[in-house]
Design a binder for these strands. Structure first.
Lengths: 213, 213
DNA sequence: CGGCATCCGGGCCGATACTG
DNA sequence: CAGTATCGGCCCGGATGCCG
């Protein structure tokens, strides 16, 4: 550990020593959504080698960022309170990197946990407070992401249920959140496909979730 | 570049692809203080191999984070507007890592730019607004860091001048900023040494700069 | 002398195979 | 499903050399 240490007494260097390794903050990103099993983490990070995932989990546990928690026969990984305090870091990184997202490439995927954190980053509390409570379903490949907005509260979960608007959430959703594409044109051009519900509610969605590009 | 790419269409992954390499965010940290020459960056990052510094500077330039700027015979590196937008990321990382700073080890150094960013992180605007304008000098090894607080404005520069309080800013200053050590006890135990000026002004300093531990 | 480029040795990362 | 074992390659780190 001494070799890959930066040799400075400084908060930033300390933070990078703890969570600066490759893949570490992406594991934290997914765990910020909720506790996850080993296989769920591996599925949400398709390109991570399994030995690296195992190594990072041990290092992050050692660093006090996460803990293994036994849950009725299986083990889940969950953030410690200290690890949860990384949320501002992850949100700030997400907001900054969002500006540098070009057009999606074919090999790039959008995972449920990544989209969840993007929505948390883009959520505008003050705008949402002025709008009626709304439930959206964003279809990601096969399963749906349930986005429930009520006042200043945002809740993103898996699973189905009654929704006001269901739509496909491909990579093109990025251009709606950035404002590059108006909701109307997104639907007209087929970038976002309305599965059911009132299509005009996509305007409310765009008002609720916005990030500068 | 495709190999070390995370394969996800997500702001956080994009950010980590751009500034997630080892040393990259520390270069950004120092450039957030001001433009720096190659040798100044190398001096502020004592353990960085020179080839890695050269490589990172090229990558960060390629990423649009910084640019080489010719300044009267010499070249300086400075952040682009896009690179300057990394400040929230660096501050959030610094605030988080600050909590995990244990006791300083002998081999660890405190550089001027690192301390400057720590002070920016710890600066409490609302508290400072209620206090009279004050200039501190924090002695770091041989030269002084001039900390000027006026209302909600914080200015940290190199060089000397008239100050209200001058003190030594070793690693122990961490315990004053965290509140672990009261200003009085810091002076009494010699952790902070008053070089000149009214020692009681260290209390004002501690009120102005605070970070949770 | 400041600003890099080059050249190795070691370690981390990534892909695959394997096991309880 | 949840990891461990192994191995090739590449990146990082340290030293040194070049060049204006």
């Amino acid at each position: 550990m001494a070799a890959r240490d930066y040799g400075q007494y400084c908060g930033i260097t300390r933070a990078l020593e703890l969570v600066g390794e490759r893949w570490a903050l992406l594991i934290v990103r997914d765990l910020l959504v909720g506790p996850r099993r080993y296989g769920e983490l591996a599925a949400g990070l398709p390109r991570i080698p399994t030995n690296i995932l195992a190594t990072r989990l041990k290092e992050l546990q050692e660093a006090g960022v996460l803990q293994r928690a036994p849950r009725s026969r299986v083990v889940v990984y969950e953030l410690t309170p200290f690890g949860r305090e990384l949320e501002p870091v992850v949100l700030a990184l997400g907001a900054w990197g969002f500006k540098a997202l070009g057009d999606p490439r074919d090999e790039q995927v959008v995972t449920a946990d990544a989209l969840t954190m993007t929505l948390r980053t883009a959520f505008r509390e003050t705008v949402a407070a002025t709008l009626p409570a709304t439930t959206y379903a964003a279809r990601l490949g096969t399963d749906d992401l349930l986005v429930h907005v009520d006042g200043t509260a945002l809740d993103v979960t898996r699973g189905g249920g009654a929704v006001d608007l269901a739509f496909t959430a491909g990579p093109g959703l990025h251009r709606v959140i950035s404002g590059e594409l108006t909701p109307d044109r997104a639907i007209a051009t087929g970038v976002v496909e309305v599965l059911h519900g009132r299509g005009d509610l996509l305007g409310r969605f765009a008002a609720t979730f916005h990030l500068a590009a």
